[in-house]
Nucleic acid binder design. Structure first.
Lengths: 158, 158
DNA sequence: CGCTTGCCTGGAGTGCACTCCAAGGCCATA
DNA sequence: TATGGCCTTGGAGTGCACTCCAGGCAAGCG
């Protein structure tokens, strides 16, 4: 395994210049109008969760049909994508709501948003390092179990 | 089963594939007897959590002093270390309890333990991949805010 | 017309992983 | 003897992130 101190430099190398993430939407802009169940199918979230996200302000108010049903746009899908990614980092929902509020507040909050994302980035790097550490332990133990055909286990690691 | 099997010998160094994780204990084996507050200081867990771990079977019964107070050993510290690592992977406590039960059940469960650790290993790898993906998105957005933020700052201070 | 399907709402419920409480035991120092 | 500190217990409480429920509306179909 490489040294843990090499992580930081590796990262700067892997993301030299930002490549825009390629997105495919189910429908092109202009015809982007999805029912809640379509969004469920696309995101893997439940309808409950989608409505709950909107209630707590994690999503801006979603467009409605003339009968009051939700109609999601490609932009909503993108937002949900970002939310999903942030959720994977372990960011609390309250923090994501805060970010959503900053976005709604306009461009005067660019600085704050930058700080928030930077902090999150540091968290992600730290978490990756932790996971690598854990992986080493796991590999070590797996090695023991793979080798230990009928020899008894070490007391040390139980 | 109060009988701790006499496996105090170290046969850990028989494996050559993985480097054994270096462990430093506050006290050498033989004088390893820690109060709950010492373990709190060493692990970062709370006393509540330590007692709770024991109650739910995530730890084997801890030794007691003649007055009934818990006295942790180096082995307990090692176990808590592993638990901490597994917790970082997002493994549910119930699964860790299951692993603890397998360990207590003896060497007939080697296969199952192996499977469990292997599955966890795959989870960890998948999570690392997810985090890298998230990192790319984060870097992309940070790049945007860095540029836009600069122009906003410029516009502000102009 | 009724039936099914899909969606709506506010509020209540769930599961997890702790986290704390109240009441008390032991023991060293003052 | 008293005070303070550290520890014990079972059980209750907390916070988070959903998850579900009851009751109801609107559209499409035979």
């Amino acid at each position: 395994m490489t040294q843990t101190t090499a992580v930081a430099t590796e990262e700067t190398e892997s993301t030299d210049i930002c490549s825009p993430p390629p997105r495919r939407h189910p429908r092109p802009d202009g015809q982007d109008s999805y029912t809640i169940s379509e969004v469920v199918a696309f995101t893997g979230l439940t309808a409950h969760t989608l409505r709950w996200y909107e209630r707590i302000g994690l999503m801006a108010h979603v467009d409605r049909s003339h009968t009051g049903q939700r109609r999601y746009t490609n932009r909503d899908l993108d937002w949900l994508d970002l939310v999903g990614k942030l959720r994977l980092t372990g960011m609390p929902v309250a923090d994501m709501v805060r970010y959503a509020e900053l976005v709604r507040a306009g461009e005067s909050t660019y600085g704050e948003r930058y700080e928030l994302l930077e902090a999150t980035r540091r968290d992600v790097l730290a978490r990756i390092a932790e996971l690598r550490d854990t992986l080493a332990v796991l590999d070590y133990k797996i090695g023991i179990y793979a080798n230990a055909g009928q020899s008894y286990e070490t007391a040390r690691t139980r």
